[in-house]
Each structure stands twice: as C-alpha cells, then as structure tokens.
Amino acid sequence: MSLNESNPSIRILSVDDHPLLREGVAVVIERQADMLLVGEATNGAEAIDLYRQLRPDVVLMDLQMPGMSGLDAIRAIRAEFPKARIIVLTTYVGDVQALDALKAGAAGYLAKSSLRKELLDTIRTVHAGRSHLTPAVASAIAMHAIDDALSSREVNVLRLVAAGKSNKEIAGQLVISDDTVKAHLKNIFAKLAVGDRTLAVTVAVRRGIIEI
C-alpha cells in the first residue's frame, strides 16, 4: 500500500501469524474514520521489513510467532526507529512477559480477548504518545515487582519439567547432577510460591515465564 501523507488517519501495521486474528483487526479498524490499516505481517522479520517500508504510526504486535518472535521484532524496530509506537496484542497476559515487552519498547499491552473499544482506545492513546496497560496487567507487574526472578538455568529446568522430563533426564540434558536439579527445583518452588512441579509449570505459564 502506498503512503498518503495527506491522510490524517492513524496508520496501523498488524502483525500476527493467525489470519483470523488479522482479519478481525482489519474489520475493526476499517470502521474507524481516524484509522487506516496499511499493512499486515505474519512474523517478526516481516514486521521489521514492512515497518521500514511503511513507517506506520502504530504497530499491533503478537508475541508468539514462527521464526522471529514479536519480542525480538520490538527490540529490532525500536533500535532502528526509537520513536516507533508498538502495542502488544497477545493471548498471554502474564506479568513477566508483559514486563519483557515493556522493557523492549512496547507502549501498550493488551489481551487478544480485549473488547473492541479497549483496542481502539489503546491505539489512540499510544498514537498520542502515551502508554497503556490494562489494570490486570499493571496489577500483576506490581504484585511481583519485588519477587526474586528465576535464573536462566532455572527457567531451562522448568521448561524441561513442562516437557515431562524426569530429574535424571533433565540432569543428562543440562549436563548437571541430579542433586543440582533438585536444588534448582527447590529454588523454583520457593520463588514461585508453589509446592510441586505441576503447580510450578502452571504458574510459570500463567505469568509468561515459559511457554508450552
């Protein structure tokens, strides 16, 4: 689509690997007199290329996509275009994932299940140079702000637990001892305030620490 500098509309790039989601976003945007969908991408790499070509006012970015993730795309776009305004539109609203997106440069964070009005209000808010977080996400971030974060090794252990691996299998895969695996699990349980492996995985997925 060609640029139209005389058009006052908020020019939007939609990035998601699910066609139905992109179609839904397109339907909502085309009904707004002050918005224009200028492009669609299916992964992070495409998003970067289209951003360079189209220079949209606002990007709607999914996080989990094949190839380059949305988080990596946000970092890359913001590194090249520091004033880029990006809203994360995702299935997962965990505090860890939300905080990672904000640190990467996202100005907004919404669940895909958000009401149409909330999406439109967020687009207008971010376009105006402000940030927007839903109360639920903001509350979750605040709630866990002083928690001890899991180390990268603990996250790796937890991913293998989520994959159904035994302590012995985890030890073999990470080239550590069984006792070290047990020590990592003890730390994970304490940091997540849970008492077993199943709950650890459940909480970690909900908070966006790991994906399954």
Rank of each mutant, 00 (worst) to 15 (best):
M1L: 07
S6E: 14
S9G: 11
S9T: 10
S9W: 01
S14R: 00
D17L: 08
P19F: 08
L21M: 14
E23N: 12
G24Q: 03
R31I: 00
Q32P: 03
Q32G: 02
A33Q: 12
M35L: 09
G39F: 11
A41L: 03
L50C: 04
G67R: 10
S69A: 07
A73T: 07
A73Y: 02
I74G: 04
I74K: 02
R75L: 05
A76K: 09
F81V: 08
K83N: 11
I87C: 10
I87P: 02
T90F: 11
Y92V: 06
V93N: 10
K103I: 08
K103C: 02
G105N: 08
Y109P: 10
A111T: 09
K112C: 10
L115T: 06
R116N: 11
H127T: 00
H127A: 15
R130S: 15
H132A: 11
L133I: 05
T134Q: 09
P135C: 06
A136D: 13
A142C: 05
A142Q: 13
I146Q: 13
D148N: 11
L150E: 01
L150C: 05
S151W: 05
S151T: 15
E154N: 06
N156K: 13
V157S: 00
V157W: 03
R159P: 00
L160Y: 12
A162W: 00
A171D: 06
S177G: 13
D179G: 04
K182C: 05
K182H: 09
K182D: 12
H184Q: 15
L199S: 14
V205P: 00
G208M: 06
I209A: 04
I212Q: 06
